[in-house]
């Protein structure tokens, strides 16, 4: 015998429940997508707080894994990343010197955030050595830790860790690869071979 029908939610009840469920995930939802940078594909992701990821050379799977590990709910972006895409595009064309985007870097340690905030003060077209950054945050002997913290920068380019170079005028390291660092420096007209520019006080 077929089971007699039990009460079933109406379409409007389901719609309300679905919308409430979706909005309950707003605080953990993260939109991700990519842009074509001059040096290849670049992934972007943003939460309701701001841009939380701008990184190079990763697979979509690895990216989504990382986002899920941070207890976020990744969703492929449609127009949600339009502002970010536009600003990156302008930067790559040399038409933008400063990003105007909120960033969400809550996952780093207090030290990492301090280093990133210091790196964020280096202006377009300028560069600074690891020692200077270490001194500026009051940890003059922590150049190596500064380098590591910059290597963990989740929002490359927007926080310009590519503007931090070695003391002797060398490139220093870069998580995205030295060819990417070189390309970014070319966009900004930075030539570390000319020597490290001391950060100007503004």
């Amino acid at each position: 015998m077929q089971n007699p029908e039990l009460p079933t939610p109406s379409a409007s009840e389901w719609k309300r429940a679905h919308e409430a469920l979706m909005s309950s995930f707003d605080s953990v939802r993260v939109y991700y997508g990519w842009i074509d940078a001059p040096f290849g594909k670049m992934f972007l992701a943003r939460t309701h707080r701001g841009l939380c990821l701008a990184s190079f050379r990763r697979s979509e799977d690895a990216l989504v894994d990382d986002l899920e590990k941070h207890e976020l709910l990744p969703e492929k972006a449609g127009s949600e990343l339009d502002r970010e895409r536009r600003q990156f595009d302008e930067y790559f064309k040399g038409k933008r010197k400063r990003f105007q985007l909120p960033v969400d870097i809550r996952w780093g340690t207090a030290f990492q955030r301090q280093v990133l905030e210091a790196a964020n003060e280096i202006r377009f077209g300028e560069c600074e050595c690891y020692t200077n950054v270490a001194e500026r945050i009051g940890r003059p002997k922590a150049q190596r830790a500064v380098g590591n913290a910059l290597g963990q920068n989740p929002v490359a380019i927007v926080i310009p860790c590519h503007r931090v170079v070695a003391s002797g005028g060398g490139m220093g390291g870069y998580t995205g690869g030295l060819d990417v660092k070189r390309a970014l420096m070319e966009i900004e007209g930075i030539d570390p071979a000319d020597g490290v520019h001391e950060r100007r006080e503004h």
Binding site: T8, A17, A20
Partner: peptide, 25 residues
């Protein structure tokens, strides 16, 4: 959708079922 239907049939109340759907997920 099916978890909502299940919660609805268990509670008989669309608002409680919606709350339970959110709690569950």
């Amino acid at each position: 959708k099916e978890i909502y239907r299940y919660a609805f049939r268990m509670t008989g109340n669309p608002e409680d079922a919606a709350d339970l759907l959110q709690d569950t997920f």
